[in-house]
Design a binder for these strands. Structure first.
Length: 820
RNA sequence: GCGAGAGUGGCGGAAUUGGCAGACGCGCUGGAUUUAGGAUCCAGUGGGAUAUUUCCUAUGGGGGUUCAAGUCCCCCCUCUCGCACCA
């Protein structure tokens, strides 16, 4: 029909105009406004298409950013591409095309889709982490870490994905032991790898969480992941040797109850202390533990197994000989990889003891006199020490300190803090990443590539980028063979590339100066524009990207390049959109293609509909049908404006008189929409605008003489409020209403709280809590007046006659309840 | 096993934080208009009774506090998401 909103023409028109007029050109040096850096996690172009989740995410964040702009801020809302890494590489391999090519193609088509959202991105600030101009600085970052000892190489048991053919960081392994990317079971291999010393900042990474506005659940996940644990490291002398086993424990108060020691199978001392008669059995056990998949080994319901080494240690408290075992329930990577076993007071040790008939010694009893009999399980609570020599009768918490002090005096132990967090493993045996700028020289060892030789380019020719179990760069002669930068003899480059999370750990600095040649970032601009005012991304990054980025920020502060502690002052997570109640996935066949709906209904309509489905943080369920409701809403606005535009455009703005309800409506709607956008509850903001439009229709239908001044004001306000949510349409209507300049250079309207207060209120009369009668009365009507009114109601009288009125409760201007 | 969050009509979802449950939208029913309707407008729409008047019932289930509970407290069920032998 000819009076429906012609979205195709208008959306195209405004995208063109905005670009031509530079409406969204960003000036980081604008001193007239205060800054807001609004960042949404960038996308990785693994496929050619933007999916519906991106629209949800980027649309909502753009709405918020536009709102801030209308409130007078200089808003920086950049967009770029996290283009290195497995998703892009796997996509390229699947299609048999070099990743550089597929990535470029994907980015080009995704950029067009991003433009269709109509967000305020200034594409002069785009970044692409796979471009040499960017990864040059990722490599520079590596070299800074290397120079300060924060990047180091070590041989270690690491997670290996047999399908992706690369090592993975702990953060990229799911809790069931599968690869985050492909789902294959991860195995453990011993490899020489590069690590970043994230554990140096373990404490700050926990304590600084108190100073940032993040979802509590996410903070908790990070705290748990970092896993700070205060305890005592206790030295157990090996009988007949000068070697010592260090055991980490959080329960030094149970030291007298230690009846054996358990080493992880990968513990350094295992070979040395295994006696000949046990070595076959020990070796067999180690071999088995090695091939066990990580998640199998860590399954809590597995029966505990282990082997005796034949050696003994001395319990420093009792001076008794205790056997040393190995068992795979002790993890090599945590604490010292060795535990003192206290079967009486640790259920895991207890179970092990049951199986291998090891002795149990009870040394803690409950502070309650009664329950002292523990036969079928360990007593893990704190209590009172006994069987513990001079420490008898101490409470556990005092005993922990006393035993630790006693050990410290004897130099056989010390208080330590242990973390669950491991150093960040950043090398990958894959092609599509930033090459590690290190040369391995037979003379000089590891030698950093000189900074002025960066970028160390990723070779595009003579390299087989398909995974083959070792780094593809290793077989590219032009790349791998090099003269040592220090001594000049033939040497080899490091064949590995960096984890993409290195690229994304610092991108938010680069956005401000994406083309800067001399430095990774401008210290001046970064210190001015960061920390980021709002960061938006999925909760799945809680223990990965979000810890890495915080770490790199803390590292850069420690070397004096930036001056603030935390990169993301406020964080929120977007919700997920389901379809037919389920997560969208190709295998379920319930994927919604955004383009289809954008073509049919327009960008604004699609975006509005997504925002209407549920609140931003929670998400919503997609239905193909509901979108027509939004189209109707758009058409209703379109017609409303068109019906009056000719009459109101020439009109001078002046004061007017309409029924108070309509004046109130304007202020109420401004308040609600303002608050809703601030809270990211766009669904209710849209509801309020729908109500507003419905009321305006009612007004025009009920009044033969429509007040045009009122129409003019309310339509202009409606269009501004609509602006952040449906930018193309609002911009068009703004122009139609005779205004000059972009809507997005206007001022967000103020509201007046007094104007919202109702002069008349509806007081509900209840009898024993049931709705009985309603009265419209002036605000502030007294209890006595209401009582009189209530007693004049037949309904009320009917309900209370024959009953005793016990009392009446009046909540001012709300409810009058008669209790019978 | 531990931890966090959620459960409201046929559907997506609201509810000023203890005060009229179901805003807004979809869908559905009836009517108007139209050559036509997958357009527009008006009315209705939680369920069950019923004299078109009113009653009963209702926010996963069961108890409790309160004049008043979707909202607060206790127990249970279901789902989602984390973590999972961390000594």
């Amino acid at each position: 029909m000819n009076d429906s909103y012609p979205f195709k023409r208008i959306e195209k028109k405004w995208r063109k105009n905005w670009e031509a007029q530079g409406t969204y050109r960003f000036d980081p040096n604008d001193k007239t406004k205060s800054k807001k850096y609004i960042l949404v996690m960038f996308s990785y172009p693994s496929e050619k298409k933007l999916h519906i989740g991106h629209w949800w995410n980027y649309g909502g964040v753009d709405t918020y950013s536009r709102f801030l702009r209308l409130r007078g801020y200089n808003v920086f809302e950049p967009m770029g591409f996290d283009a290195f890494g497995l998703p892009a590489e796997n996509y390229a391999i699947k299609h048999g095309i070099p990743p550089a090519k597929t990535t470029e193609n994907s980015i080009n088509s995704i950029r067009e889709q991003l433009k269709a959202i109509g967000a305020m991105y200034d594409w002069n600030y785009e970044i692409n982490t796979s471009r040499p101009e960017y990864y040059k600085w990722t490599q520079w970052l590596f070299l800074q870490l290397y120079k300060t000892g924060a990047a180091y190489q070590k041989q270690a048991p690491v997670n290996w994905c047999p399908d992706c053919q690369t090592v993975l960081a702990n953060e990229q392994v799911e809790s069931d032991g599968s690869c985050e990317r492909c789902g294959t079971s991860v195995i453990i291999r011993d490899l020489k790898q590069w690590f970043f010393r994230i554990t140096d900042f373990a404490d700050e990474l926990i304590t600084d969480l108190d100073n940032i506005d993040w979802p509590e659940a996410t903070k908790t996940r990070q705290k748990h992941w970092i896993g700070r644990s205060e305890g005592t490291e206790i030295d157990f002398r090996i009988d007949g040797s000068d070697k010592v086993i260090h055991c980490f424990t959080t329960r030094p108060d149970t030291l007298f109850g230690v009846t054996y020691i358990v080493l992880a199978p990968e513990h350094d001392l295992v070979n040395e202390i295994t006696v000949d008669s046990q070595s076959d059995e020990i070796n067999e056990y180690i071999a088995k533990a090695r091939i066990l998949k990580e998640y199998e080994r860590q399954a809590t319901d597995r029966e505990k197994t282990g082997v005796f080494t034949g050696s003994y240690a001395i319990n420093p408290a009792t001076n008794k000989k205790i056997p040393i075992w190995i068992a795979d329930y002790v993890l090599g990577g945590y604490g010292t990889g060795a535990v003192m076993a206290v079967p009486a007071h640790d259920q895991r040790d207890f179970e092990f003891t049951q199986k291998y008939n090891l002795p149990i010694k009870w040394v803690i009893r409950s502070a309650n006199e009664h329950d002292t009999q523990f036969v079928d399980h360990a007593f893990e609570d704190y209590g009172i020490m006994y069987n513990s020599g001079e420490f008898n009768d101490l409470r556990s918490d005092d005993g922990k300190k006393a035993v630790t002090k006693w050990l410290e005096n004897k130099k056989q132990g010390r208080a330590v803090v242990s973390f669950r967090l491991r150093d960040w493993l950043i090398s990958r045996q894959r092609y599509w990443g930033a090459p590690i700028p290190i040369v391995h020289c037979p003379n000089c060892g590891t030698v950093p590539v000189p900074e002025d030789e960066l970028p160390l380019l990723l070779p595009e020719k003579n390299v087989d980028f398909k995974p083959q179990g070792s780094s593809p760069l290793g077989s590219c002669r032009e790349f791998i063979d090099v003269k040592c930068p220090k001594c000049g003899i033939s040497a080899k480059r490091d064949p590995d590339t960096m984890d993409t999370f290195v690229c994304s750990s610092w991108y938010y600095y680069r956005y401000l100066t994406p083309n800067l040649n001399e430095y990774a970032f401008s210290e001046e601009l970064v210190n001015k524009w960061l920390p980021i005012d709002l960061y938006v991304g999925g909760p799945e990054h809680a223990t990965g990207h979000l810890i890495y980025a915080r770490y790199i920020n803390k590292y850069l502060k420690s070397i004096g390049l930036i001056n603030y502690n935390e990169p993301f002052s406020k964080l929120i997570h977007q919700g997920i959109i389901t379809h037919k109640g389920q997560r969208m996935s190709k295998s379920k066949g319930n994927v919604v293609n955004p383009d289809e709906f954008v073509n049919k209904y327009g960008s604004d309509c699609f975006r509005l509909y997504l925002q209407f489905m549920g609140d931003f943080r929670t998400g919503g369920d997609w239905s193909d049908e509901g979108i027509v409701g939004i189209r109707r809403f758009q058409n209703r606005i379109w017609r409303l404006v068109n019906n009056y535009v000719d009459k109101i455009v020439p009109l001078e703005s002046k004061s007017y008189d309409v029924e108070p309800q309509y004046k109130r409506l304007i202020h109420y709607t401004i308040r609600e929409v303002t608050q809703d956008i601030e809270n990211f509850t766009f669904n209710t903001a849209i509801s309020r605008l729908m109500e507003f439009v419905n009321e305006m229709y009612k007004y025009t239908a009920d009044n033969e003489n429509v007040n045009l001044s009122f129409m003019k004001e309310s339509l202009n306000i409606l269009i501004i409020l609509l602006g952040p949510l449906a930018p193309h349409m609002a911009e068009e209507l703004w122009q139609k209403l005779g205004n000059n300049g972009s809507l997005f250079d206007q001022q967000w309207p103020d509201y007046n709280e007094d104007a919202i207060e109702k002069k008349m209120v509806i007081v509900v009369i209840q009898v024993k809590g049931k709705l009985t009668e309603k009265f419209s009365v002036p605000k502030g009507t007294s209890k006595v007046e209401i009582h009189k009114l209530a007693m004049s109601s037949k309904k009320v009288i009917g309900k209370i006659t024959g009953r005793e009125v016990k009392k009446v409760i009046y909540i001012q201007d709300k409810i009058f309840n008669i209790v019978v």
